[in-house]
Design a binder for these strands. Structure first.
Lengths: 150, 150
DNA sequence: TTATATGCAAATTGTTTGCAAGTAT
DNA sequence: ATACTTGCAAACAATTTGCATATAA
């Protein structure tokens, strides 16, 4: 349903692999397919489970290695929300969103706020920093979990 | 040099320990003393090293357990900046600051920006969330590391 | 006394790596 | 053919836990 975007990222990946003489294998194809079809913020575990539906013999080291590859070439981003798991999402270069995380049900909602970005630049400048990336996460209760008490 | 603040936190800790029948030991006293005298964002390793200057026999499990205790009773906060280490800082309830982190030298600088807080509330409300805490980190190059090239 | 703490080492968890066998080019 | 890849298991790093011993109350 998002062919253009997927195509763009696959092109980047292919260019990166070609440049380094890396090879296309069926495992990599499966993992990449699943990653593109998956909602954002997948963990390795989730990805591995889905990938094994297609090919049960795939090992988790291969998933780790492939996600590392996707991260290196800029197609994926690693995210660590304090629960000990690393999650991955599509890089999504232009629209860098941030996250609201429900501490009850772990639901993750994305938001975007240009005014915060502007303030960040101001803050960094004040301290003489050059910002490369940022992390802005709000932890709390989502509407559903508020309703359910607590 | 910050007796009142320390006293306040020690009171909280003592109340918490009393309520649960936990005991005061010389190890805990040393660890707590070092934690209060330490600049913010200490890792377990750093803390253990400093504590062992006072009592070389203290084990790292005890440091972990004591910091967990301090976290449970609300005196300390856990922080995870993506380098794999958990760091601890005084809870410091009122003035909740955020962080600029140098990706080269790992230097950590604190900042405070009420206008960002205001925007956060606005964002949360828009999504129906009730915010409990947040994390706002800017990763980049500090002035020194910019100068050193890279 | 007796229940809590400690230090050690072993266990756990998430992730990485070495290597022999497999495979894309 | 050759060099990259894979799956497995072992290695790792950070943290947690089980247990016998030590100790605060």
């Amino acid at each position: 349903m998002n062919d253009l975007r997927d195509r763009h990222y696959r092109d980047i990946l292919n260019a990166y692999m070609a440049k380094r003489g890396l090879r296309t294998t069926k495992q990599r194809e499966h993992i990449v397919d699943v990653f593109f079809s998956q909602p954002d913020h997948v963990s390795i575990e989730e990805l591995l489970a889905r990938v094994r539906e297609v090919d049960p013999a795939i090992g988790y080291a291969t998933v780790y290695r492939t996600l590392k590859l996707l991260t290196e070439c800029g197609v994926a981003h690693e995210r660590k929300f304090g629960d000990g798991l690393t999650r991955y999402e599509l890089a999504d270069g232009e629209a860098h969103h941030d996250h609201l995380i429900c501490v009850e049900c772990q639901r993750i909602v994305e938001f975007e706020e240009p005014r915060v970005e502007a303030l960040q630049d101001e803050i960094a400048k004040k301290h003489g920093f050059v910002v490369r990336s940022h992390k802005h996460e709000l932890y709390g209760l989502c509407p559903d979990c508020q309703r359910k008490g607590n």
